[in-house]
Design a protein around this nucleic acid. Structure first.
Lengths: 208, 208
DNA sequence: GGTCGACCGGCAGAAAACTGCTTATCGATC
DNA sequence: GATCGATAAGCAGTTTTCTGCCGGTCGACC
C-alpha cells in the first residue's frame, strides 16, 4: 500500500543530528517524511500538509512534546502520535499515553522497532470527523440495544478496515480479534472489503 | 456522593505492610476497601464482590500485575484499574496504559495523590447532554474492539437509565432486552442505578 | 401483619459467539 | 507451472451470553 501513496510522517526533534538520521532512515523505507525542529514549526506543517502520523520527541525547548501533542490534537483529533524520549519520567509516559499516544519509545531509538510501530499504525485514510457519528447514530433512539451496539461495531470495523487500506491482517492486530471472528462479523454485518476500498481509495487513485 | 454509598476499592499488594497502611488510609477517607495479597485471591473477590475500582501493584509473586489486570478485565471489562510500582520500566508503563489503566503511580505512594486520583475516577458523571461522548470515545484508538463496543453498550444503558429516572422496567421496553440480561450486563459493566440517579437527579429534584 | 409490585440474583438449559483446523481461491512471485 | 501469502468459508468443539423459572428482599399500601 505504501508504494502508491506513501505515508506522510511528521518527525519532530530539536536535536538536528538525530532528526536527520531518523528522517533518512524512514525515507529509505519509503515513507514521505516531513521534519520540524520545534513544536512551533511542526504545528504549522500540521495545518498545511496532509500528515498521517506524528513522531515526536517528548522534550523540546519551546514547549514540551505533551503540549505540542495536545495542540496537534486540536486540529487533527485522531492523528496517531508516537513519542520517544531519553530519561523519560513515569508521569510523562502516563500523560503521553493518556493523550492517546500509540507508543512510547526510549532513546536511543531502535530503528527496527520504530519501523514496526509505524507499520502497525498504517495509513489512516479515513476522514474521522465526517462519518464518525452518522454511521451508527442514525439509528432511532428507540432501536433495540442490540441493533445499536451492532451498528457501532460495524462502524468500528469499517473505519479500521479503511484506515488500513483493507489489510485484514493489520485490522486483526489493531482490534485484537480472531481472524475467523472478524470474517463472521463482516458477513453478519454486511461489510465488504471491496466496496469499502472502492469507495474510499478512488479520490486519489482514480484519475477520471 | 461517597457518603451514602462508599466506593468499593480492591487493593492488591503482596507487601502486607504497605497493603495494610494503604487500606487504613483509604478507609479513613470513607472508602470501602477490600484487600488481597495475591492476584489469585483478588480475582476471586472480583467475581463475588461488587467492586468499583482496582488499585494494584505491578509486581507480585504469583503473577504480574499486567496479567492480573488482563484476567480481571475478563469478568469486569471496563473496571478502572490504577497501577503502582517502584522501579517501573517504561515498557511496563506503556503496556499498563494500553491495557486501559487509569493511572500509574510510583512507589512510595503519595497518599494525597492516590486520593485525588481515586476521587477523580469515582465520579463518572453522566450529565446527560454534555459528556455523553467521552464515556466511550475516550477509549484509545487502538483499544480492542470488544472493549470499545462494551464501552458503547455501557454508555447506551446508562443513558437510557438516566433518561427513565432509573425505572428498569421502562428501560427493558426501550432497549428491548431481557430483564435478566440487563441485570447481568449492569453487573459486568459496573453500572449502578443508585449512583447514576444520585448524580443526576439531585441538582433539581432534591428539595432540601 | 398481609399483599402487591419492582428489583435482584442463583441456577440450568438453550442459543449465539468464538476459535482452531482444514480446504479452496486468487494474485504475485519464482 | 509451482509456490507462497493473504483471504474466505465449512465444520466442530469450546466458551460465553441469553433467558425462563424460581425464590428472596424491600418499600408502599391496604
Amino acid at each position: 500500500m505504501t508504494d502508491l501513496e506513501p505515508m506522510v510522517i511528521l518527525l519532530v526533534d530539536d536535536d538536528l543530528d538525530v532528526l536527520g538520521a531518523n528522517a533518512r532512515f524512514l525515507r529509505a523505507n519509503d515513507f514521505f517524511v516531513l521534519v520540524a525542529e520545534s513544536a512551533g514549526t511542526a504545528l504549522g506543517k500540521l495545518t498545511t500538509d496532509n500528515i498521517d502520523l506524528i513522531v515526536t520527541d517528548l522534550r523540546m525547548p519551546d514547549c514540551s512534546g505533551l503540549e505540542f501533542a495536545a495542540k496537534a490534537r486540536e486540529s487533527r483529533p485522531l492523528i496517531p502520535i508516537i513519542f520517544f524520549s531519553g530519561y523519560a519520567q513515569i508521569p510523562d509516559v502516563v500523560a503521553a499515553m493518556k493523550l492517546g499516544a500509540v507508543e512510547f519509545l526510549e532513546k536511543p531509538i531502535d530503528p527496527d522497532q520504530l519501523l514496526s510501530v509505524i507499520r502497525k499504525v498504517g495509513k489512516p485514510k479515513y476522514s474521522p470527523a465526517a462519518t464518525q457519528r452518522d454511521a451508527f447514530e442514525s439509528l432511532d433512539h428507540s432501536s433495540p440495544l442490540k441493533m445499536r451496539v451492532l451498528a457501532y461495531e460495524k462502524f468500528l470495523i469499517e473505519s479500521c478496515l479503511v484506515q488500513h487500506a483493507g489489510d485484514v491482517t493489520r485490522v486483526l492486530e489493531t482490534l485484537q480479534i480472531n481472524r475467523r471472528t472478524l470474517n463472521d462479523k463482516m458477513f453478519r454485518l454486511g461489510i465488504s472489503r471491496e466496496v469499502l476500498l472502492s469507495e474510499n481509495q478512488n479520490p486519489d487513485d482514480m484519475p477520471r
